[in-house]
Amino acid sequence: MAIDINEYNSKLKPTWCPGCGNFLIHMSLKKALSELNITPSQTYIAFDIGCNGNGADKINTYAFKGLHGRAIPLSAGLHLANRKFTVIADLGDGACFHEGLDHLIHAIRSNYDITIIIHNNQNFALTTGQATLTTDEEKPMYGLPDSKPERTLEPSEIILSANPSLYARGYSGDMQQMTELIKAGIQNKGCSVIEIMQLCPTYNEECTPQWFMQRIHKIEDTNRTLEEARKVGTITDESINTGIIYRNTQLKTFYELLENRKDTQTELVDEVKQYDVQKLFDQFK
């Protein structure tokens, strides 16, 4: 029995542009939580700044809308303090690959047991359409009438270079698949990166639902080497593969590798009390 999805609704209605991919991403996240029977009070979402972050007060879970680019380290801190919570970092391609790129790489290599949802709409939309590293190289953008001089980078290359525990790609027009991918991310023990190719009818109007539908190709969830995953993950002019691209079930999480926490059953939140430091003090001579 899934939890009623209305449980996850706040009193406010979303404010995104008509046709924005965020509506269905937001809905898929709620649906994934409900289908996994994770209650609003068992969920903690760290929202970044950007159009996605405007969803923070539109969902009824524990949440923290913090700073631009910092949803990932904030999530890591939330998670390590109480691993019983389902912790999700929700951020855009600007936050993830520009302001906070270091956090993405280090979170993957640290392998915190969190789920990172990247809303990849190929631009900084909330500040009205600046280029990101996923923006098409030829495309004129805000303040860049002749397009950006920098090269485009492939998120899958960045993510796979750090050997993630799970990497999946969804499309904001396919709620059913997104829900399944987010569920897989939450259920995976380790750092799960879910990249969502997001419609942005205002600042990326060329990439219409039809444009995406011609290119989207769903792939199977099978064992792949990193090399195979790179091939499958590469976006070409003709095709964008969606589905679970890579899993590495061998990786231990950050917390599991902490020698001093191995035999501890409690969480850090349970342990705040006065500690007698006399023995430690006595070790000083």
Binding site: A76, L78, N82
Partner: peptide, 10 residues
């Protein structure tokens, strides 16, 4: 940021 997150969690 990690300190902030852990403090927010309690």
């Amino acid at each position: 940021q990690m300190a902030l997150g852990s403090m927010a969690m309690g």
